[in-house]
Design a protein around this nucleic acid. Sequence first.
DNA 1: CTCTTGTCATACCGTACGGTACGGTCATAT
DNA 2: ATATGACCGTACCGTACGGTATGACAAGAG
Lengths: 205, 205
Amino acid sequence: MLLTKTKLDRDQRRELILDVAQEVFLEEGFANASMSVIAAKLGGSKGTLYNYFKSKEDLFNAYVERRCLWQDEIFAAPIGTETPEETLRRIARAYLKRVLTDFNLKNFRLITAEAERRPEIGLAFYNAGPRRGAERVAELLSGMQADGHLDLDDPLDAAHQFLGLAQNRYFKARLCNAIPELSEKQIEAEAKLAAKTFLRAFGKR
Amino acid sequence: MLLTKTKLDRDQRRELILDVAQEVFLEEGFANASMSVIAAKLGGSKGTLYNYFKSKEDLFNAYVERRCLWQDEIFAAPIGTETPEETLRRIARAYLKRVLTDFNLKNFRLITAEAERRPEIGLAFYNAGPRRGAERVAELLSGMQADGHLDLDDPLDAAHQFLGLAQNRYFKARLCNAIPELSEKQIEAEAKLAAKTFLRAFGKR
DNA sequence: CTCTTGTCATACCGTACGGTACGGTCATAT
DNA sequence: ATATGACCGTACCGTACGGTATGACAAGAG
């Protein structure tokens, strides 16, 4: 059958285009990214590119949409044998490891820069990313509270505060490109510090 | 005298150009800002503009330099009659009020977006801004500890954590343009929450 | 075989930009 | 009065971009 065959190829190629577009957008920013070089990197022609996406904005929207589907489990539930401190450290470590990545920061700069002119893009990203993340952490903290390990007023408030404790020192610095990617040791130290302070405030004594 | 007169005018005009350039850069971003519209907004000509700054990059560098000189006293020292909680709330309130401003966020997006390609810009900004701010807070916390109000391991760690507690929930959201400017009430609530948690962790009992 | 469909390559259009050049104007210093 | 120097307005250059059009080629369908 022709229809199904070409249909399949079309979706595959679309993904491939988005892969290349992502690369270029992250490296150059939206304004500086060029449809011509995207087509060239594809090994294809601009005609084909415009066959799949009707404009540069359209392509960028598709990129953002795909990026916002990202939702995986950095925040795994606590394991039975873990102490509360271990659980918090593990969460903070996984979170920092993800969020301070070069890739993640490039994406973040790209989105925020474009959110200036197009708030709906920033909103979609925020809801799928930071907002969802904080809610997930709140769920975990709720569980820990139910187990009698924590003494929280409001789990969501506490989740935001915990993430703030964990990331504040390095997130801005990394966003400003003022420091290179962190070592495992640095991440571990920061995660430890965040967990310690959080438990000093909210741990059941 | 001709020399001093023209010299004075030159500095004034330079500042005026930078004012206009700032406006355009913040509104359009570096890539989208146009030297022609800057000249037009000046009421002057491109020739004059290029008489003062030899290129768009040069103009942008001058803008960043001027912005990075920013250093004032959001973080005033504690007043004699204040309780520790009041001091912390006042600091957090002043900090949030400044950092969550539309203006500040536009500047932040602009700098970080450009820091991608030119790390020295991001570094200069980070050192003059977030870094310096955290150090200032650390000094204040040190003073409070000397007065017997706090029990800290490391004042700088604590300062980063305190600022993290205060800003994490709203900073990213504002950066993504996902929420509008905060009301006084919201800022007050967040400052209160941060101070409360901080004292739960580090307050002398 | 022919016809269709999607792709490639390339040339092209209009536009906008950064930056330069030039001629005219106006105020001031001598 | 005249010369100097800064400014304005505008036209211009080269370049690069987003986007379109065209023609050729390859592969699968009838």
